[in-house]
């Protein structure tokens, strides 16, 4: 009652009446209450407090917690986009950095000083020598060509001298019968 002015007296009286009502009408089995209370007013007050608590930190005008769904959807979409970007970057990096490790450049050489042309025919070019002409060294009669090949398997090949003579590589570690009356070289990488 502190701070009330005489003009507030009707309110004080009303409060006293409410208190008296509560005091005189205790809930069954609860005993007498120590403090005056109006149930409806208390419930309304509690609702108001809870609503204020729920609204705490919520942007002005935001009425419902459902409004949080939109930002969450955006977060999921952003996360998915980030994952896709990560996959793309990872794939590119793997393709760029790791794949060359799987391929080695192999130099095929043949000493044929008298030859006017030497070509390489192999299983890796479908036994088609086009584009696989060896280059003659200016210093000696050595012919050579560098071919990028994938590691992890064995290849078979022959040299064709002057367009007609098929020979195996005398320097190849592996030599095999080709089944057509000749021999072929094999190289494991």
């Amino acid at each position: 009652m502190k701070g009330l002015k005489p003009t507030d007296m009707p309110q004080v009286t009303q409060a006293r009446k409410r208190a008296a009502w509560v005091f005189d009408s205790p809930e069954p089995g609860s005993g007498a209450r120590l403090f005056p209370r109006n149930r409806q007013a208390a419930a309304a007050s509690a609702d108001a407090i809870m609503e204020a608590a729920r609204a705490f930190g919520r942007p002005n005008g935001a009425k419902r917690p459902q409004s949080a769904r939109a930002p969450r959807a955006w977060r999921v979409a952003a996360l998915a986009a980030a994952a896709v970007a990560l996959i793309a970057i990872s794939s590119t990096l793997t393709a760029t950095l790791l794949r060359p490790l799987d391929v080695v450049e192999v130099r095929f050489t043949l000493e044929a000083p008298e030859a006017s042309s030497v070509v390489l025919a192999a299983d890796f070019n479908g036994w088609s020598p086009e584009g696989y002409e060896l280059t003659r060294s200016a210093h000696d009669g050595t012919w050579s060509i560098v071919v990028p090949l994938r590691k992890g398997r064995a290849y078979t090949y022959n040299f064709i001298i002057d367009g007609e003579r098929w020979v195996a590589d005398p320097n190849a570690p592996m030599l095999l019968d080709d089944g057509f009356g000749g021999s072929m070289s094999s190289l494991a990488l």
């Binding site: 996959i87 794939s91 793997t94 794949r99 391929v103 192999v106 560098v146 990028p148």
Partner: peptide, 24 residues
């Protein structure tokens, strides 16, 4: 995502043929 990406890498053929031929 990274694991899926790594698993999905193809077998290692060069993307571009190299001179004088891809050799693969």
């Amino acid at each position: 995502a990274l694991a899926v990406s790594a698993y999905a890498q193809p077998g290692g053929r060069p993307a571009q043929p190299q001179n004088p031929g891809s050799g693969v």
